[in-house]
Design a protein around this nucleic acid. Sequence first.
DNA 1: TTGTATGCGTTATCAC
DNA 2: GTGATAACGCATACAA
Lengths: 340, 340
Amino acid sequence: MRTPVTIRNVATEAGVSISTVSKALNGTGHIGAKTREHVIAVANRLGFRPNDLAQSLHRGRSFSVGILSNDIYGRFTLPIVGGIEEALSDNRVSVFLCNAADDLERQKRHLDALLAKRIDGLILTARRTDYLAPLDIAALGIPVVHAYAQSAAPGAICILPDDEGGAYDATRHLIALGRKRIAHVGGPQSFEATRLRQAGYRAALKEAGLAPPPDSELFGAWSEEWGRDAARRLIDGKAGLPDAIVCGSDQIARGMADGLREGGIDMPGQTALVSFDNWDVIAAATRPALTTVDPNLKELGAQAGLTLLSLIEGKDVKPGIRRVPSKLIIRRSCGSPDRS
Amino acid sequence: MRTPVTIRNVATEAGVSISTVSKALNGTGHIGAKTREHVIAVANRLGFRPNDLAQSLHRGRSFSVGILSNDIYGRFTLPIVGGIEEALSDNRVSVFLCNAADDLERQKRHLDALLAKRIDGLILTARRTDYLAPLDIAALGIPVVHAYAQSAAPGAICILPDDEGGAYDATRHLIALGRKRIAHVGGPQSFEATRLRQAGYRAALKEAGLAPPPDSELFGAWSEEWGRDAARRLIDGKAGLPDAIVCGSDQIARGMADGLREGGIDMPGQTALVSFDNWDVIAAATRPALTTVDPNLKELGAQAGLTLLSLIEGKDVKPGIRRVPSKLIIRRSCGSPDRS
DNA sequence: TTGTATGCGTTATCAC
DNA sequence: GTGATAACGCATACAA
């Protein structure tokens, strides 16, 4: 079943030496034009494919990197991994995908395997941006970048979404549309993302000379149920219904939309909604469809991949946290025109 | 930054020959107990890690395989890839993840890279089960298995979900609960999955001496919108509301549930719902929470990985299609007790 | 029990 | 312009 046609086979078949074949195929060294063509023809005919293992062994670079995740099943992992893979494969490097599944022993096994396979670099990913991978990066001896993950290690390079900026943009969008009494219904406050989004929301408000209405900064779970629950609280609140709500996720917004609609509230007439994630299955199916902050996860992944590449090639990269700008996706939940 | 401690370093440091180190570390050949311990100690102290590239080159087996997908972003890809990765990494083989993105040229690039890296085998995945990868498998020269994908190639090995069995089970569940007028609202008929599910639904009905009520086999899109649309059609139908509905996906069921509820229908009182996917974000958030067929995608991936392993090890595997049994997840949308 | 020599598939350094 | 030859890091048949 194997097809181990080696450079030696090509050499004998072409009636030249091994080194001549190598030169002909790699365009290195000085070689006769006719010999070159001949060798290439023979190589093609035989279906010769240089053994990358041998090449890697020789040049001390494997052109492969590892992605180590603790949550391969997470909804956020996918676009990130996709972005990494695309950016890297465009640069001829392959990626090993490893799922540590929050299991330290498994993580070690994966790391051992990756290191043994002489990966040129490693990308760490996590379920939430404020997760700290318990891992001695420096001891690895290869470049590491964190994608959608943070590290306390000195000099660590972390690529993260711009939660604060996203919330700021979303809130400003609401303000620009004339909304003034803007509430914020976020996820769990234990998440850094939640706190950052609140900060962005507040910043935009403050800048416009506004303030959060009383009892209108609510925090709960990342769920539709919490969104529905919050809707009731907003409807029943003595402060009166806000004319806009910044939700911490599309799921929350979806619950909110359902809750408000069932409470007889008109959207976006009485209340406008913006949210986070641009998880299209949710955002597009919500009534009204959600205007939402797209965290640009695929781009985040691509940047992580490219950054790792720079590191591998020896360029120096500024350490610390880099935040990837988000993008506001306009749909109907704010009442603005589709293009604005 | 590199830590290229080789077997040679260990040898000199330990004051023995290279082959002695190799034997000591691999437990092969006859060697003195004290020498072995000594060598091992030195190796550990130096942090020696055998170069897998060299080992692979030597043994002609790389202990790595490739996953080639056309749709890395698909919701189904994730659990499948996760299952593959887990099964394989438990057997010390690493996986390269490649996204062809429906681009033939990109696919070729990936294949070239994988083959050059001497992967031991390849797993092909797709967006839909009836997708045919335009690829000459035999020419690859390595074992291939299709996961959630089919191939017309003779001798191809395909692992697929059991759509028909799942629909059969779901429908029988409804019948066992006393429902008699059972409708079916599926996805696009162009999907094999849709046709198989319809077949399973009909088989269960027939077996129970029942038949689909008039105008109650509806087909549309894989969307909530279609579910809501179908709900109106069922409510307005002159044949009267069915007392149960088998939906082709959780998304359809979610739209159906919303449509029915807003149409004043009580679930599961008047009408029970079952669906497909067990996509928990949808299924659990629907009111009522959906009883749904879990296609066991992770298990499917694991089986694909294990099957590939068998192939690689030279065992022979029965070619053709193997369907992985699904599992009915009981929630509230059928009115049955949570455990049944 | 241990060490020497050879090969795995390539590339690169040198002679010729 | 072309071809031996020595690495790359490791495993193993064989010799000692």
